[in-house]
Amino acid sequence: MGINFRKETFRDDFSFRNSPEQIRRFPFPFHEDSYMYAVNIEPHTPGPKNTVFEHLIDVDEHYISEMEDRALVLAEDPLRCQSLPHMTLAGWDLLELLMTQKAESYPEHFSLTRDGDNWHWINRPLGIDDRFTFGDVSTLPYGPMAYITRQSQGDFCVLDQRDGNLWMDAGIVTTQADWSLDFDIGMNFFEWHAPVPLAHDMGIFNRALKFLTNIQQGQPARRFNWTMTINPRLDTSPENYHKWGVDRTTVTPENVGQKVHLRVELQTFWRLPRSNALVFPIRCYLIKMDELVTSPKWARRFHRVLRDLPNELAEYKGLTRYRQTVVEWLSQYDDGAPTSSGFGPD
């Protein structure tokens, strides 16, 4: 059974929405009624059917529209996709990973045929049918990382591992939660996380780095992060902040349900075989408040998380201007009843 791809937009008229099936598989990130940083990394293994973990690389109903939005962003600003010269090999590794995973998980939509270095890739949803030579950049219309990530949902950071650190030396970032690849490319793990409050003093990044540098081939790991976005806008980049920042002042009690979105990032971490680099796909899932509250447990819990969030975190995530309005709106769905542990809806 194939995926029913939606035709929708993430800008202008913002026609994005989730189908009821997609709401049920939404990766709600809070396992309890409060939130604080933790090195919440776990093995990335396939999960139950009808969850975003069913396949290690998830493709969902927003696939085609997200790829159209990515193409628009890259046409406006090519600096969103960059690779330092030593990262080409890692780009081929990434192309192999994404093609093999997609073809294995979704044979009705993707197929890969390999005869030595001669590869044949078919992406039916996007109407792509290409033959190329693995390892030869002249046989693809873009570099290997750009080619395959223009066909893959989520942002991708490709990290070189040297001197016990990870270096953000390549990536494609068009759906980011307010950070600039063009600015951060070439930085090490501590540097690109420098603006994050509180976590450094908690030793979070030291522990996370130790774990990440030891990730081995075939044993990917994952964690969640989250923020909120006004309007279902994928491109909340600092580059365009002067264009979308004003959205944050438009939240009213009447439009919370449609305008305010919880934005969940599923971050996964994979060792790449030829380059010994690490790839860090950041997959973004959006859900409207109206959609979220269709699960009573999620509504109660998100109300409590948002209400009790430390101010530094609210400020860093850019929630300050509208947090109170959203908390008040959510309070109508919170009768104070206890919530069950775990992520899923009841």
Binding site: H86, L89, D160, R162, Q217, N276
Partner: peptide
Amino acid sequence: SSPVNLFSLDLR
């Protein structure tokens, strides 16, 4: 075991 690299080339 699966391969592990602790003596990687610096591709820069």
